[in-house]
């Protein structure tokens, strides 16, 4: 009995310690005088690695998700004779929920895991240590560009995902199921509000992006420098990010709907 309580206590303290370390890491990366001349090219490289290289999966998933939502929505709406409302249905579900959440989940799987594995391997092969011994701060040279790169990439990916998904729904609804294109767009335009739906969705994606990349960077930086350690860190990075996305989505939605 005592041992269980001790184990629980130790687990609690460890978790707190991890949280503290993660917070410190974020603090030290964000509140630092940025070196624009050296930092900008590095950050752009990471926007390329995390954003541009994720484009393919984002576009393909966006297209299919839009198409599936349109197909499902059409058959449900048709039962109530409201098939004309397909545009609003797709646009609202994509801009408010599916866009930010699915993009963030894909981003965690595609870019977050890659960042964790890369940083973990750099640590295991003593690249971070040798950088430190060359009087170059790895936080500034390695961690910070990756964090900012992910931070900038996520909202951009979400915007592209949203557009592609709505276009996919247009393909299914208008081109395949034969809805009227004018009604599709005009119903969408009357129901979707730019601030409440589009901008709030993008705000969500900014928060998700920061959290995903923060978790990825932290797991990589604190990974045990062995092959098993890096494998574990990569798994944790994806699992924790996904949980954080879904949990935060609820909180953010409640905040936005509740008008906090």
């Amino acid at each position: 009995m005592m041992t269980h309580i001790t184990a629980l206590g130790r687990w609690g303290i460890d978790t707190l310690e991890q949280l503290g370390k993660a917070g410190l890491l974020l603090f030290r990366v964000i509140f630092r005088v940025p070196n624009v001349k050296k930092g900008l090219p590095l950050t752009l490289q990471q926007v390329y690695a995390e954003g541009v290289l994720s484009l393919l999966i984002i576009v393909v998933s966006g297209l299919f998700i839009g198409m599936v939502v349109a197909l499902q929505g059409y058959h449900t709406l048709a039962k109530f004779g409201a098939a004309q409302q397909l545009g609003p249905l797709v646009a609202l579900s994509v801009t408010r929920e599916l866009g930010p959440v699915v993009t963030a989940l894909l981003f965690a799987g595609r870019a977050g895991s890659a960042v964790t594995a890369e940083i973990g391997l750099m640590k295991a092969t003593e690249q971070l240590s040798s950088m430190e011994m060359m009087a170059v701060d790895p936080l500034q040279r390695v961690i910070s560009p990756r964090l900012w790169g992910g931070f900038f990439s996520m909202p951009l990916l979400t915007m592209i995902f949203n557009t592609v998904a709505i276009y996919g729904a247009y393909l299914v609804g208008v081109k395949w199921l034969g809805l009227d294109a004018g009604a599709f767009w005009s119903n969408m335009q009357t129901s979707v509000d730019f601030h409440a739906d589009v901008i709030n969705g993008i705000l969500k994606s900014i928060v998700f992006g920061l959290v995903v990349i923060w978790i990825a960077v932290f797991q990589g930086y604190e990974a045990t420098p062995t092959s098993a350690g890096i494998a574990g860190a990569t798994t944790r990075s994806v699992v924790y990010s996904s949980l954080a996305i879904l949990g935060l989505d609820f909180v953010l939605t409640a905040m936005m709907i509740g008008g906090w």
Binding site: P41, Y48, T95, M159, T163, I166
Partner: peptide
Amino acid sequence: TIESFVGLFLLAAIMALLLLAFKVSGL
């Protein structure tokens, strides 16, 4: 090359946002 790809990426995202603003939400 990387910078031009990132530029294209940014451009695509801005166009997506404009589409979302005018075509989807009728702003």
